[in-house]
């Protein structure tokens, strides 16, 4: 007997098994057979440790299958923690749309996303929307895009303005909160309200990611207990220094990784 991986699950088979036999037994409708990253012929004789992927084009994996794939990629303990976590994202622009996609890809359990805005042509330089989504509410367009990536993430949306009065209600039950606004007065409003009302819940905010300065000037800093600030703290969006996809997505990547680390019990900074 030899051990192989079939669609990320381990399997013991007879030493002389050929790929076509494996296909008949495990995935008769597959039309793509990949062994160790490369397309393989049906008469290929399987070897110890081979990683076999059998795909039917266009087929969407079930929740259980996708779960197994995520577990294999992220280790079961990590996946178990991520998949039962809930993260709140205030703002679905350049930061929020990128953060939401990163968290959906790692298989977060639930996202609560709030924004009042519609997708505009000028957003497409950095925000994760498509040209045919112009005019849609950002929260609706983002939910649609996230569901195309991972339909098993629970997504709750709120279309409207966030203020100190509705903050707790919109983001009830989140394990980590993310500030992903564009306007500095909104960033300050949300941060003050969150630190006043939900000091026990970590907040990951961002300040300073415009232009095309060095990537390395964007950092994750612990500002105080349960409050992490990401960015270069300096480069504001202003005439002559616009927001551009690379640095905005770097800051968003810092924020998403800070969320991940907090969920896994690690210090983000």
């Amino acid at each position: 007997m030899i051990s192989i991986l079939v669609n990320e699950s381990s399997l013991k088979i007879e030493q002389t098994t050929r790929l076509s036999q494996l296909q008949t037994q495990h995935k008769p409708d597959a039309d793509l057979l990949i062994v160790n990253g490369f397309p393989a012929k049906p008469d290929y004789q399987l070897c110890q440790g081979d990683q076999v992927v059998m795909i039917k084009r266009g087929e969407i994996p079930s929740a259980e299958q996708l779960e197994a794939l995520m577990m294999a990629r992220h280790t079961p303990g990590v996946h178990a923690l991520i998949s039962k976590s809930c993260v709140g994202i205030a703002g679905a622009g350049g930061l929020g749309s990128n953060i939401a996609i990163a968290l959906a890809r790692v298989g977060i359990g639930k996202l609560i996303i709030a924004d009042f805005d519609l997708v505009e042509p000028s957003n497409l330089n950095r925000q994760q929307y498509f040209i045919d989504q112009i005019g849609q509410p950002k929260v609706a367009a983002l939910k649609e895009n996230l569901q195309r990536i991972n339909p098993y993430v629970e997504i709750e949306t709120f279309m409207g303005r966030i203020d100190p009065q509705n903050l707790r209600q919109i983001f009830a039950g989140v394990d980590v909160m993310v500030e992903a606004f564009d306007a500095p007065d909104q960033k300050a409003m949300l941060t003050a309200a969150h630190l006043q009302q939900a000091a026990e819940c970590p907040l990951v905010a961002a300040s300073g990611m415009a232009g095309y300065e060095s990537s390395n000037s964007i950092t994750t800093q612990k500002n105080r207990n349960n409050f992490y600030l990401i960015g270069d703290q300096q480069n504001a969006a202003q005439p002559g220094q616009g927001l551009m996809a690379p640095r905005v997505s770097i800051a968003a990547g810092h924020q998403a990784n800070a969320v991940l680390r907090l969920l896994l019990g690690e210090e983000p900074a």
């Binding site: 564009d182 500095p184 960033k187 300050a188 941060t191 300073g208 480069n235 504001a236 927001l243």
Partner: peptide, 10 residues
């Protein structure tokens, strides 16, 4: 007194 300052962009 501690001051946390925000600049625009996101």
């Amino acid at each position: 007194l501690e001051i946390i300052q925000f600049v625009g962009g996101g």
